[in-house]
Design a protein around this nucleic acid. Structure first.
Lengths: 234, 234
DNA sequence: CGATATGTTGAATACGGTCAAAAAGTGTGG
DNA sequence: CCACACTTTTTGACCGTATTCAACATATCG
């Protein structure tokens, strides 16, 4: 049984957390909470003083646009930190749950005060943020400079790696609750086109993604198509 | 004359730095260096122990792809931090200079050690990283979910705001050394198309971008087209 | 001035988007 | 267990934004 403090310090770079660890939240005024699928934990544009640590489940961090579309920035997973903002003021993104989602909620002030008094914690948080940077950067590459099959392959490989790191994926196989619509909003494409690429992947026996389950048949070829290099996730 | 330490602590969120401040680097084993345009300060994939603080000039932070294309992640400007990576290991992006570029170079170990001993520094660095996150997120929205004129307008407004913050832009007018090719690599489009949109902007008296100078004629309309909200830059 | 980089324009093409409808899956309550 | 409503996936036909290719013009710089 770890305290939240130990939990935060234990996992390098925001995702390393062994499967067997269970976590308790008696630190920093943290509240352990759980949300059903489809809940919105915090709204873009709203003042918000909480920071979230994901315990389990899939989150969706996104920016909504005036025309009603949205760009999903990331899918926060076990061990990820959401909502550490540079200044006071409204949030620039919304956080929703894609599945049942368990989180620690911490007043940001408590976290920054703890960082003031404990340099190691500050370094750890900085590392977590730097890793998020790398993930966002890769999503930017996906949206900006990779064609449809490449970006889809890349995202599915990223998710496999991130889930493995926190112990909830076996090699080439994992549960993914994202809809094709959500995949499209992550990658900057349309639902219809995601659907077409996925069925191409199936027809060419590359990867099967159905009923919330991802099965990589030819992982080597997939890595080659995607130009995937896991280094950025370390 | 500020020390680097004061310099870092003084500017909120990686960009706030008054025009009159000059800065000296007698801290953390920092080396002040200057590079001519087109230099590559660090290479994607290479081991690298330096962290960079930009003093002046325009940097280009990008990821190169197997097919020779690249996605520019950001244009580091005065006050920005580059290269704080979550773990040891190779860099996932390259840093080049678009203009003459002056930086502080600091061994990462020195910085993290200082953060260990000085909680306030850790908080500051975390805030800088969080702001970079917000900027990357917005670039992702540009690449993924905005059409050509919207994304171009948005980028030009972002640059205006960021340059203003560090005192090197007047309202609606600033020097921008980026080529159309570089703009394209930031926004995930082609040079030709950037060119066409820019000339549309000129024809409709919205914004003039020529010879390295940006002049916003109808800034209000531009903000409306872009759906620009500077909040994410705070 | 000549060499090279950057910007501009036109025509043809393609990738992915749009629109629309149907099929399959999921969940709920009777 | 089935009926019903709703969400998600699938498919087809058509369209449009942005790309590609190619040529030429204009800056920039040594």
């Amino acid at each position: 049984m770890l305290t939240l403090l130990e939990y935060i310090k234990a996992h390098p770079a925001g995702g390393i957390l062994s499967k067997s660890l269970s976590v308790a939240g008696e630190f920093l005024g943290a509240t352990a909470k759980s949300y059903g699928p489809g809940a919105v934990l915090c709204h873009q544009g709203a003042e918000e003083d909480r920071v979230f640590f994901v315990k389990s489940g899939w989150g969706l961090l996104y920016r909504g646009l005036p025309n009603g579309e949205r760009q999903i920035l990331d899918t926060p997973l076990r061990g990820d930190l959401v909502g550490f903002r540079s200044a006071q003021g409204p949030r620039f993104a919304s956080l929703a749950s894609a599945t049942e989602l368990s989180v620690f909620e911490i007043p940001k002030k408590n976290l920054t005060e703890a960082m003031q008094n404990d340099g190691a914690l500050g370094v750890k948080i900085a590392c977590v943020l730097a890793r998020q940077n790398a993930i966002l950067a890769e999503h930017l590459v996906n949206a900006g400079r990779r064609d449809a099959q490449t970006k889809l392959a890349h995202l599915l490989l990223e998710l496999e790696d991130r889930l493995s790191t926190v112990g909830i994926a076996s090699p080439g196989s994992y549960e993914c609750p994202l809809t094709q619509h959500e995949l499209a909003d992550i990658l900057g494409m349309t639902t219809v086109h995601v659907n077409r690429i996925l069925s191409e992947f199936r027809k060419s026996d590359l990867i099967y993604f159905r009923h919330g389950h991802v099965d990589m048949i030819d992982r080597t070829k997939l890595i080659k198509i995607a130009g995937f290099d896991r280094e950025y996730l370390r």
